[in-house]
Design a protein around this nucleic acid. Structure first.
Lengths: 183, 183
DNA sequence: CTAAAATAGTTTGCATACAAACTTTATTAG
DNA sequence: CTAATAAAGTTTGTATGCAAACTATTTTAG
């Protein structure tokens, strides 16, 4: 029948492979710096925008705030970041790097994408562009279909703790995780 | 400097977005069937090849055996799969679906990729092909550089518990996880 | 044939990741 | 101004995911 379907399957397959490898590579490579991929990514995000709100970190990393809290806990325990409760709006917590954190961010390699980045940089401009266009398109597909584009790209997100996926939900309206123990 | 670097950054960025969305979508969509993405994927893998060894499931899902054990534990607790210790080679465990599992697999939707697949199928053949080529290339970059291609594509994998990432290691030779606190 | 090595699966410990519920603080409605 | 909402962050519970260590079984080497 349709080679088109096969092509789609191939794309999904390769996407999975890329997922796996980047993931594993990230896990490994960053472990060598003493930090995990997400931790390093968080550190870099903070370095760029400090002092930065927790929710802003979550937004920039496309993560749930609860996840960011965990990552910050561990970074703080290692003395790499500081949390500062805002006096203006006491709900807000501003995060910044400690000196150790700053030092670390300076000497931390480009990690995470390492392999892929290096490989991509080796390609011809033409191939590079076509890959960029392809991924653009995939992002667009995922963003334009069921998901409000802002959910991924723009600042006014993360309001109801619904995450990117929350939007996809909509049609399901099913109760999730009915609470194990106590009220 | 080079717009090339920007292009690479854009690719990485979009890749992350795709990761996130597919991940989230998978998490949600499959939750609607009562099972998580990995669980559903495992069930389908088992359905295709039952009775199947645990290590074979791991290989097909590109996961670590330990991860598969966890998934199987939960599926078994729900009465969807059965584990049968082989009498020939008593190290081996063969996994198959229970009747409930088989029933479930029949009515479970094509899940997991849903959104992306649907979006891709809507594209012109040309665009589809160029996306396929792009991902091919990325997979190749990741596979051809530091990783033996078989590690991802061929059957004779997963022998030493090295996983996809293990191969990347090789050149690093560093101790991993030296038990918590370190210099 | 027995000691050593290899395999299959599991267990343990930790780091993500998210949803739901909760706390504290600010905003808004009436 | 007070009651109701909303917002920011956190806590709790569960599910992935991996590495290292471990158990039980084969295989292999000497």
């Amino acid at each position: 029948m349709s080679t088109r379907l096969d092509t789609v399957a191939e794309i999904i397959d390769n996407l999975r492979r890329v997922f796996q490898v980047v993931n594993a590579q990230s896990k490994k490579a960053e472990h060598e710096t003493g930090l995990t991929g997400p931790q390093l990514w968080a550190i870099k995000t903070i370095a760029q925008e400090a002092p930065i709100m927790v929710s802003e970190i979550a937004r920039r990393m496309y993560l749930h705030p609860a996840t960011v809290v965990g990552i910050l806990d561990r970074l703080e325990k290692q003395g790499l970041v500081k949390r500062i409760r805002s006096t203006e709006d006491r709900r807000v917590v501003r995060v910044e790097l400690s000196e150790r954190g700053q030092a670390l961010v300076k000497k931390s390699p480009e990690v995470a994408q390492g392999l892929l980045v290096a490989g991509l940089e080796r390609l011809s401009t033409n191939k590079l562009n076509s890959i960029a266009r392809a991924l653009d398109q995939m992002a667009e597909i995922l963003g334009a279909q069921n998901i409000p584009p802002q959910l991924i790209l723009s600042p006014e997100v993360n309001k109801p703790y619904r995450t990117v996926a929350g939007a996809v939900r909509a049609k399901s309206a099913g109760r999730r995780r009915p609470t194990k123990t106590k009220p």
